[in-house]
Design a protein around this nucleic acid. Structure first.
Lengths: 242, 242, 242, 242
DNA sequence: CATGAATGAGATTTCATTCAT
DNA sequence: TATGAATGAAATCTCATTCAT
């Protein structure tokens, strides 16, 4: 069973709005705002610039000066609001995780029948990775650090209970209706769903090089989406159906 | 269909010998070798230390001084053999890629029937990721760099043709015998096989944190191996079988 | 000859009330005073916080932000009342010197017979150093600066004439009555009296460390007081008595 | 009993050679030594410049750039040899303490009769404070820091046992011969000896200002030396003699 | 009078690389 | 070949002071 083309977000693009597009951050310094005195705005500007810089170059490669310049804010403010580079990084991490977890909840999967809900989740996840390379980069950076920053953040750990609950309910509903295999662990399944998209997108540069294919080409992205749905839905089919 | 326990490398540990174990690199400086005058040995020592340092901290986080100290070799030698830090990184990258590709070829998959060969490949890949965290780290680092170093290396690009050939042959043989679906692309399939293990292992630190599970625990690794085989083999089954 | 215990301020504690105890300055910001509009109070709060911060960390180590926070007063007020950090420091210096000189005059030494008056002065000085570590710190800081701030303050220089007068009278009275040696210079003597306590208290941290004794322990302080009185009174005895 | 003028180090100047004169450190950068490659010399140059800068301005007031410039050494070397500013400060502290303790031992007090030995020690100490203002400054700085650096240094703590031993022996010898009071504690006495000179010299800037006397004037220094000897020797006389 | 965000100058520290020995 | 001291450029971070509100 495959995803129907009409609902496919890559073919019918931008079904799911990007939350914080990297593209919005221009390299040129923002026009001097002559003492804006708007703390929230300043904080947000720094965070936006930091996300772009850190996800592009990693925590070690990112330059505080560059972040300050891009955000159009005095460097000193960066320390005022975030303490130091690491504090800034932690905030970027928290915001970035919060964004995807919030978007997932807003999918409202409870309202759909289990297979449709599952396809929607799988495609959403895939599309999210396409739209948010910064999320992928950040995961890579954080894992290189053995998640030391993530472990410091209480906020992040509490973000994930809802996700597991949603998937768990979905699997139970599906199993009760005889549409899904029984006994599937929601965390295992989520890891598999994420894995199929993450590896492709996060490693698109090396994979494109070693396999001599442009994995970023739009048709390939569409095809990969179908493939992922295919793999997951096949796996979920109850045994008697096979 | 699941992997039989008797062939499972995690249960029957260390079926595949690690090629360049990170563990071998102690943090203490190597015993002074009093003018070793053994170029190959010096080169290898530098490379080993550099692999450990770079995969632990990324290219930007790695310190040239630390690499020199760990390898017990004078810093000047490092520049003598590898030109600069980037050259050293490139060599690390090449060696690391060569190791996995060589190991794959040595699996001798042509000698097995298609499903057995496929299971072997899937489990090998999974086990390799478990044994070689440095490979995962390097991929992460290199993708953060948008594969700029990889693209410079002619050596690496030529390493991958055999892999695609092997998988392609395997799929064709299986399809001819009615054991696999037809029309599966070998690159797509390899990406899926790698994805299912890579994401889990590369992101084990963040995933363990956000889901409150120790993904490094041995029983979970065994279970994940079975899950991956299950997903892949189910996907490969021909339609009429389902 | 030793000080009698009944008049000893350490044994009969808190004979002389502390004027600006460091202890009163809590590290937590003072409760927001919602637009106090009480200039004197504001000034005093700043001065108290500044004394604590500057004497704890020196002029260079003190932070204007910290002083503002501790005093519960806006930073701008600090500049309003004291001009700048140096002006604030100068005010702290003046207040601190004024406090000890005022307390000395209030001893009313003229009313006592010379030996009793001298013992009272010596013990007062010793006790004052115990109760006012901030005074010792400030002297240290100011001398590191070669007294440049002190020299700017007309107020401070005029504070000391009375002290010299009091000691001078005391010595003359004692010599006339045959109780003290003749020809002792009051400034020399005051420096000696202060020296015997100052060095012990100001350097108690280093001295405790290098000699492996806790010089801050109360019994030791009592004993040191006796020792100082002993040294001074022995020195003052007329030659024929020895 | 007073010190005889003929042996007085201020009158017969420089009896005791200064160990590390601040004067030797010129403010102008040392002539570029074109890659001297003499580690000991480099280390010493940094230490000399650091001692001058830190004792003149305190730890917080001292500038790493200035130290580098004055020592004619690349700033980076400072971190190479001493880790950071605090490490450099600790080394300065250790060297400075070691210098006075070494000089004390070289007095060879055991060879003199007790009163002569005591006078020599008292005058040495006084003269040392005159010749080494950097020692006084450093004590002040360190006490402002509550001796946190000193406490870290094992080296310094072991330097002081000999000093206490020497004084202790001296007092015992003197008491046995009926020349000194019995029962005097060597640490108490040393603190008193040091106090009488330290306070005068360390606080000479403030004291000169508030008392309107130039305490740095040579005749006054001579007189103060006599006074200190007088105070100490009077105190040590056995009771029956008085 | 009151607030605390914002600033610029300058502080400490880091690091890949070179070079005298 | 081998050593590790030395370097310059640039990184992160600090701080007294000012200024819009």
């Amino acid at each position: 069973m495959t995803a129907s083309a009409t609902t496919h977000p890559v073919l019918a693009p931008v079904v799911l709005p990007p939350i914080s597009k990297e593209d919005n951050v221009s390299k040129a310094p923002a026009p001097r705002q002559t003492k804006s005195r708007d703390p929230e705005r300043t904080r947000a500007a720094i965070l936006r610039a930091a996300t772009a810089e850190i996800t592009a170059k990693g925590l070690n490669g990112a330059r505080v000066d560059t972040i300050a310049k891009r955000s159009g804010v005095n460097k000193r403010m960066l320390y005022h609001y975030f303490g130091n580079k690491q504090g800034l990084y932690l905030s970027v991490l928290e915001e970035t995780y919060a964004a995807i977890r919030t978007a997932e909840i807003e999918l409202n999967l409870e309202a759909l029948d289990p297979p449709a809900a599952m396809r929607k989740l799988v495609l959403f996840t895939w599309q999210y990775f396409i739209d948010h390379p910064e999320f992928l980069s950040l995961l890579g950076t954080e894992n290189l650090n053995r998640a030391v920053y993530l472990k410091k953040s209480k906020r992040i750990r509490h973000l994930h209970a809802p996700l597991v609950g949603i998937i768990s309910n979905l699997l139970k509903r599906g199993a009760r209706q005889g549409l899904f295999r029984a006994g599937i662990d929601p965390v295992d399944l989520y890891i598999t769903i994420a894995a199929l998209g993450f590896f492709y997108m996060a490693n698109r540069h090396t994979l494109s090089t070693i396999f001599g294919r442009d994995l970023n080409a739009k048709p390939r992205l569409v095809q990969r989406g179908k493939h992922i749905v295919d793999v997951v839905m096949t796996y979920l089919e109850p045994a008697e159906k096979r």
